[in-house]
Amino acid sequence: MKILVCISKVPDTTTKISFDESKTKLNTPNVQWIVNPSDEWYALVRALELQEANAGSTVTLITVGGADAEPVIRKALAIGGDSAVRVDVEPTDSFQVADAIASYAKDQGFDLILTGKETIDGNSSVTGAMVAELLDLPYITLANKLEIEGNGVKVERESEYGDQIIKASFPLVVSAAKGMADARIPNMRGIMAARSKPVTVVASTSAALTSVESYSLPPEKGAVKMIAAENAEELITLLHTEAKVI
C-alpha cells in the first residue's frame, strides 16, 4: 500500500498575528512554523499506524512551498514517513496547492492520499477535494475513523445529522478529522533519522486563481462585564435587553 500524506506549513497556534504596512503580508520574523495540526495528528499519524499494521507499505509526505518549508517537513519526518517531496512554489491559494500535489501524484500510483481536515491559517478545508477532482478520484470528507478493508478502506464519519459508514476501493482521497489517531511526539531517534530521509524537490507550473487583496484584524474586544455570582440571573436580563441575543 502506497500512502501520500499532504503536509502544510502554518504559523504556530499561539502566534500573535500581524501584517505589514501593505496589509497583504503576514509579519513573519517572530513566527514559529509548525506542521498543520490536523495534517500531523490525524493524517500523518493514522498513515503511520496503517503502515505498521500492513507490512511493505510506504508513507510519502508532500508539501508545497519554498525552501523555508524544509524544516517543517523534517519535523513531520521526525514523527515518521519514509521520504518527502517538496513542490517548489510559494502557493497563494488552495487551488495552487491542490494542482501542485495532483500534478506530482498523478503517475505515482498512490493508493491512499490523506489530508488534514483544514489548515489553521487558510481555514478553507478544500485542498483534499480539489486533489481528488484533479485526479478524478473519490473523496471522503472529514473522516473520524479509517480502517483498511480488502483492497480499500472503511471510513466512519460522525455528524450531528447521523453517522455514515463509507466503504471505497483504492485509490482515493480522505480528509482526516478528530478521532482518527492519537497524538505522537517525535523522539530523539525519530529526529535523528529525519535528517537523513530523502526530500525530493520538484518544480511546479501550478498557478493560483484567487489573490488576497488585504488582511485585517478583528476590532479590539471591549472589557468583559462581570456579574456577581449571587446576581447570576442578571446575566439573562443583560443577554435579553443589552446584547439582544436571546
Binding site: 498575528i17 487558510g122 484567487t210 488582511y215 478583528p218
Partner: peptide, 19 residues
C-alpha cells in the same frame, strides 16, 4: 472580492476571485 476569516479567526482576508 469576498471577506473570510483566516488564521483561525485571528484575522480576516479580503480575497479576490480572478476567474
Amino acid at each position: 472580492t469576498i471577506k473570510k476569516a483566516v488564521f483561525s479567526g485571528k484575522a480576516f482576508a479580503n480575497v479576490t476571485i480572478n476567474t
